[in-house]
């Protein structure tokens, strides 16, 4: 099914359909990930791929054009390149261990160690969260910084012109766009609260069940984006003004890095959470993971909402015949 969807994407010309298909693709891959035991990953993929990226792609389409023009070049050279690369990769898999084999090199080096040590050292049932926030805390800090940087990049690229056009007011039409969809509005009002509650649950229960800062951040952002789409940008910005979002983006990274810096001020290594409760290192790990995940969650929410604001606030410069 995944292959079919991907090939349809190649053949379709309507970009709108392509965006929808890419959402379908993400959802299908999330299902596949569940069967591969990667529940945390599937969770993220579903929230990110089917939720946020579809909205962002649609936002881009609204600002650009809707149909693809056919390419005049011959598709043969790229096809050859792709086939050769594919053949090389398949040749590479010949030495790979069989699928699901417990003797595979990937299964025999560090992972058993993580699985055996994490209950005693960290005391968090979800091993993925334990590794993410504690053993590999540096990586996660780096990744949060990447998300942060990308957010800043988007703002730098497409927020610049906004101030100038602000006064011209396309606020009226935005507000009235969805006024007639009564059911949509009522359902949204109900859902937004629940989505936020779920996000908080995912955030703070990430140590015990699938979830954590990344997923919670994305889900929280979805709540705001949904509200913004159904009502209007102005209304959601009344609840969560852009300046606050921009502060949140920085605050999350600050919480994360601050936890690390605190731990070496009291005489431990950077990001060694035992510092938070030296008598009970396990409890310290627990607090540390919670704090760090909170930082991740805040940054991810902030970046996603900020990106959405940046796209949605941009007045579309579409010529009519393209729609």
């Amino acid at each position: 099914m995944l292959v079919t969807t991907a090939i349809t994407v190649v053949r379709t010309r309507s970009l709108f359909a392509i965006v929808m298909l890419s959402g379908v693709f993400s959802l299908l891959s999330a299902l596949l990930l569940v069967t591969l035991d990667a529940v945390d990953v599937a969770f993220t993929e579903a929230a990110v791929g089917a939720g946020i990226s579809t909205v962002l792609l649609l936002g881009t389409l609204a600002l650009t054009s809707r149909f693809e023009r056919p390419v005049r070049r011959s598709p043969l050279p790229p096809l050859i390149v792709v086939l050769v690369t594919g053949a090389a990769l398949i040749y590479g898999t010949m030495d790979m261990p069989n699928f699901g084999s417990p003797e595979a090199p990937a299964q025999t080096h560090v992972s058993p160690d993580y699985i055996q040590r994490s209950p005693h050292e960290i005391g968090v049932p979800n091993i993925v969260t334990g590794i993410l926030a504690s053993y590999r805390g540096y990586d996660t800090l780096g990744e949060t910084a990447v998300v942060f940087t990308a957010g800043i990049g988007v703002l730098a690229l497409i927020r610049l012109l906004r101030r100038r056009r602000d006064g011209e007011g396309n606020t009226k039409e935005g507000a009235s766009l969805m006024r007639h969809h009564l059911i949509l509005r009522v359902v949204t009002k109900l859902l937004v609260g629940l989505i936020m509650l779920f996000a908080l649950y995912v955030q703070f229960h990430g140590d015990y069940s699938p979830g954590g800062g990344f997923q919670a951040g994305v889900i929280m952002a979805v709540a705001f984006i949904l509200y913004g789409v159904v009502f209007s940008l102005d209304q959601v910005q009344m609840v969560l003004p852009p300046w606050l979002v921009h502060k949140l983006v920085a605050l999350g990274v600050l919480i994360y890095a601050g936890t690390g810096i605190y731990s070496f001020f009291v005489g431990f290594n950077f990001l060694d959470y035992s510092a938070l409760n030296p008598q009970h290192p396990e409890h310290g790990q627990h607090y540390g993971i919670l704090l760090v995940e909170l930082g991740v969650g805040i940054t991810v929410t902030g970046v996603m909402v900020a990106i959405y604001y940046a796209f949605a606030a941009r007045p579309p410069i579409l010529s009519d015949e393209e729609w």
Binding site: S53, L56, L132, V146, A150, L157
Partner: peptide, 25 residues
């Protein structure tokens, strides 16, 4: 199952969407 790839990919997905949105911008 091996939790290590899960951790790597989990963060990679979120970084991926951030970079995608940079591309879209």
């Amino acid at each position: 199952s091996n939790p290590l790839p899960h951790v790597l990919i989990l963060t990679a997905i979120v970084v991926g969407i951030a970079t995608t949105s940079l591309g879209l911008a």
